[in-house]
Simulated scan of single mutants.
Amino acid sequence: MRIGSVHIPSPLVLAPMAGVTDLAFRTICRELGAAYTITEMVSAKALCYQDKKTLPLMELGPEEHPGGVQIFGSDLACMEEGAAIIREVAHPDIIDINMGCPVPKVANNGDGSGLLRDLDKACRVAEAVIRGAQGTPVTVKMRLGWDKGNIVCLDLAKMLESVGVAAITLHGRTKVQMYSGTANWDYIREVKHALSIPVIANGDVFSGQDAARILRYTGADGVMIARGVFGNPWIFQQAQAALRGEPIPPLPPLAQRCDTAVRQFELAAQNKGEKIACLEARKHYAWYLKGVPYAGYWKSEISKITTLADVYRVTAGIKRELRDGRGDG
C-alpha cells in the first residue's frame, strides 16, 4: 500500500486510540507485525497554545516508520498551525485527521465525527491541514455519518479526495452507534470502488481471520485494527498468517503474554514516568488476562497497581499459580 509517497509494507494498521496506543504499546504492536502505527489523537488547539502535555503524545519511536500523528479539531487556523507544528516537531511520515471520534465532548464541539454534519467545513479542515503539512501526506479517519439517516461517507470521501487527501480510513459505524451494533462493511466496499486513493477498512476486526475477511469483502487496501488489539498485540501475527493462507498461530502461553505486558509497562514508565504508566497499566494488564480462568483475584490485584514493583509482584503470582498447575489460560 502506498499513501502519497509513503510505502507501507503490509496492509496491517494499528488504529489510533486515546489512552491506548501510546508509544510503548505501538512499539509492541510493530514488533508483532503492525506495518503502520498512528499516535493517540492530538488536539490542534493544545498545540497552538503550546500545552506541554501534548508534545509527548506525538513522539514517534526511532524505528516507528512509517508512522503517523493524528490531529483533531475544527478551527481552520489552529488545524493549519497544528499540522505545521507536528511536521516540524515529530517528523511523521503521514498526518491523519480525526473525523470519527464519537465521544460527546469531542463530537458535540464540532470536532471528530462532528465534522460529518458539515461536509464543506470538513473539506476546509482537510485543506488547512494539507497547507500546514507542506508536502507530508494527509489522510482522514472517519465514520459512515452522524446517524443512519445521514450516511455521508461516499460524498465526503469523494470531496476529500478532490482536495488532496491521500487516503481514507472508514469505520463502518455511525457516530450515534458509538461502538454498538455491527460495522457495515458494505459502505466501505462502496467507498473503495468509488475512489482512486487508498481506502483502509475499520470495524469489527477481532481476529486474524476477520482481518483477511474484511480485506476480501471490501477490496480495501489496508485493514485498521482497533479494539481487537486490546490485550492481544499478537492479532497482527495471526492476521499475517490469515492473509498468507497459513494456519493461525495460537496465542503464546500465559507466562509469555505476561512478560510482554511487563515489557510494555516498563517502556511506558521510561516514556511517561512510573506513576502514570502504572495507573494506565491497570486496564492494559486486565485486557491481557481476558478469558483466563481463575483471573478474578489477579484482576483485583491489578486494579491496585501503583508501581512497577506491584506489576512484578502480580506477575510473579500469576506465574506461581501456573507452576502449581492452575492451567495456562
Rank of each mutant, 00 (worst) to 15 (best):
H91A: 09
D93M: 03
D93N: 12
I94W: 07
I94E: 04
D96G: 11
N98I: 07
N98M: 05
M99K: 09
C101N: 04
P102F: 10
V103W: 01
V103N: 06
P104Q: 03
P104I: 01
K105R: 14
V106Y: 00
V106Q: 03
V106P: 00
G110P: 06
D111C: 09
G114C: 01
G114S: 03
G114Q: 02
L115E: 07
L115I: 06
L115P: 02
L116D: 11
R117L: 08
D118F: 01
L119G: 09
D120H: 13
K121Q: 15
V125Y: 04
V125M: 04
A126L: 11
E127R: 15
A128K: 02
V129N: 05
R131A: 08
G132R: 07
G135H: 15
P137H: 08
M142Y: 08
R143C: 13
D147Q: 07
D147M: 12
K148I: 09
G149W: 08
N150L: 02
V152F: 06
L154M: 04
D155I: 00
D155G: 00
L156Q: 06
L156Y: 03
A157G: 15
K158Y: 01
K158I: 14
M159V: 01
M159I: 01
V163M: 11
G164P: 09
V165N: 05
A166N: 07
A166I: 02
T169L: 00
T169D: 03
L170D: 05
H171K: 05
H171S: 02
T174I: 12
Q177A: 15
Q177P: 07
M178S: 12
S180I: 01
S180P: 00
N184E: 13
Y187V: 02
Y187E: 05
I188R: 04
I188N: 02
E190A: 14
V191K: 04
V191W: 10
K192Q: 08
I197K: 09
P198K: 03
P198G: 01
P198S: 01
P198F: 02
V199S: 05
